[in-house]
Write a protein that binds this DNA or RNA. Structure first.
Lengths: 211, 211, 211, 211
DNA sequence: AATGAATGAGCTTTCATTCAT
DNA sequence: GATGAATGAAAGCTCATTCAT
């Protein structure tokens, strides 16, 4: 059955992680999967199809990362919840980052990856939506300022989560190192408080009614 | 002389932009540069050295992007200044993104790129520092809240700027499309205002004296 | 039983017709025959044996093409009979031409095909013989000139019939196009009349006593 | 210069002669030409281009085979001239037969070969024309019967010449064996005399005014 | 008898690199 | 400095064939 397929796909993905798309040869895949090169072509039309499948599997997995988050609206502190959101985003994107980066090496592959994300009810858009809804809910409870654009805030968090993952991959840092939590907390605090002075100092700053 | 070197390097970088590291062959480089393949090896020890040089040049260029920004502390609105900062970060990273992404394909190349950034007085760290200093200055003028961690805020902006660039590359979107400005404005506004409710509602929110 | 054998052989021959020996793979044969590749090896030792069998079958079929012709000695016109002979030769050779041509691609296959033709009481030799006998019979009736070498005439017709078939295959022309009949008629007429002038003009031509 | 090209082309053609298109691998070509496989691709875009070139060269060579024949109209015996024509056709076609046969293995190759023959002022059509003109000239001298269709006679000879070459290739017979001359003489004699009875016997045969 | 996963040799092709000129 | 023919290793892929089920 498709145990062999799975072995090949896993081996490929693993190589994608460690070598980068350019260096992944069918020979290496075969060796890593413990099969012959010919067998790869028995299960996949060509190398492209295999890579596509790897990308598809991983990309589809991004689906609704935040769906599993028990975001208790109105419960715990907002900061705690946002930190949890960011951490989840960060961790999941750390996982798919090699596959995601691989799609940069190939035009067609990238287009395909985009399609996959578009088709699925899931993917980044869905995560952003989930966050925006959460923020709006907190807004109704008065835990988030009324003038906040929940959608914009969600996109902000999304960008930050991905970027942290990408940088840690680039720096080849462990995703579980202690500093990450601290970094996320600092980030959340900044977003929570905002840059604008509060209270009396408000008069000082330049008006930005329409900004 | 090094006119030829330059031609070869430019051609290589251009191919990196359009094809990705995997697809860049010496033959294509030679053709694009209008020289023979053999000549490449008169100017560079091997292909790796050439690629390294391309990466080195572009990476070194990341240096002090914000140095060119006339960030007038205390002048114009803070929002306007932040928007300008973000836009500059976004644009410059959009330019180097292909080279940056290329470094993911090769372990050694990536390590080298990191070294380059570390060595130079310039690079991301410097931009972050510049932003942090700017924010701190505004803070002293009372245009930024006193409790803001200027360093954390700078890192936040940095992440957002890079991530916007990466996503637009991935989506193959034009970096000058009108929507970008709007996106940046929304983002700045959110960061400025923060998520926390202001005024009386402040009592409602959880204390975060030490958070 | 040998229903499967037959399916495989038919499929192979069909592919030989349309692709040429070089392009006929076991995979394609299996697909065309609606069986699995493995099954082919239950019925034939190897691919060579299968091809051999196809060639054998078709070659054996060449047998006695003219035997089916109701060549009525002394009846109808001689030209009509010759045209019919040529047409039959042409048509039958058009059918086997792909298999025949295939034998050029493989030394051993060709040798085998020759053996087959030799073994059978049938094959080209038999057709030539049949024609020679027919011509000799007409000769006795005075419908063919007494000085004609019936064997040589038969070989002549044989060559022409095959060559027409080969050329039409090479030109990828339909064997039933109207022009064929006209071509055959012209050919027969030339053979019938001969090139030598007749009657008084005979004196003019150079003597060919020994030619 | 193109000495290498020539070596490769020659080697390829030689292999085409001995193995058939199907069995000609780039590896063997390289070995036979005394070069590396890679070099083949330095001189030819791909294997197809190489084969095309071989076919083109040989096919173009068919050009005007009879042009070199000093066919002395009115001189020597007609039979001698026709025998010489047939022998020349036979010999030249014996040479190109392997390449010609190769074109059967590949649809595109065959189409290309046809184009080559069409384009050139030369090729079979030209030979046929030359023969037809020769026959017509003899006709005017009264050495060929007035009612002979010179074009049809030329086509007849053409077919016979090619077919003899093909059969000898198929039988793997030497093109210079003594029997060939005898075969050609018999053939010419038959064509010269025609099958129809001459003189008084002419009344016996069926009328063929319109045949 | 039939399947189809699995094999391994060999094919065409690419590509970084060298070297005589 | 510059050329481009030449190399050789390795890439992606095909295909006849085997074998456990």
């Amino acid at each position: 059955m498709n145990e062999t397929r799975q072995k090949i796909i896993s081996a490929t993905e693993h190589l994608l992680f460690s070598h980068g798309l350019a260096r992944v040869t069918t020979r290496e895949i075969a060796r890593a999967a413990g099969v012959t090169e010919g067998l790869i072509y028995h299960h996949f039309r060509d190398k492209a199809e295999l890579i596509h499948e790897v990308v598809e599997l991983r990309m589809a997995e991004v689906k609704n990362v935040l769906g599993s988050l028990p975001l208790q609206v109105g419960l715990r502190t907002l900061s705690e919840n946002l930190a949890q959101i960011l951490y989840t985003l960060y961790h999941s994107h750390y996982q798919i980052m090699p596959v995601f980066i691989s799609t940069f090496a190939d035009h067609e592959l990238r287009a395909r990856a985009r399609e996959i994300l578009d088709e699925r009810k899931g993917g980044p858009e869905w995560d952003i939506q989930a966050m925006a809804l959460y923020i709006a809910a907190e807004q109704r409870l008065g835990r988030v300022a009324a003038n906040v654009n929940s959608r914009a805030a969600a996109e902000l968090l999304h960008k930050i989560g991905i970027q942290m993952a990408m940088m840690d991959r680039w720096m080849e840092l462990d995703p579980d190192r202690a500093v990450v939590k601290k970094e996320i907390r600092d980030c959340v605090q900044t977003i929570m408080a905002g840059l604008e002075p509060r209270g009396e100092s408000r008069r000082v700053k330049t008006a930005r009614k329409q900004a």
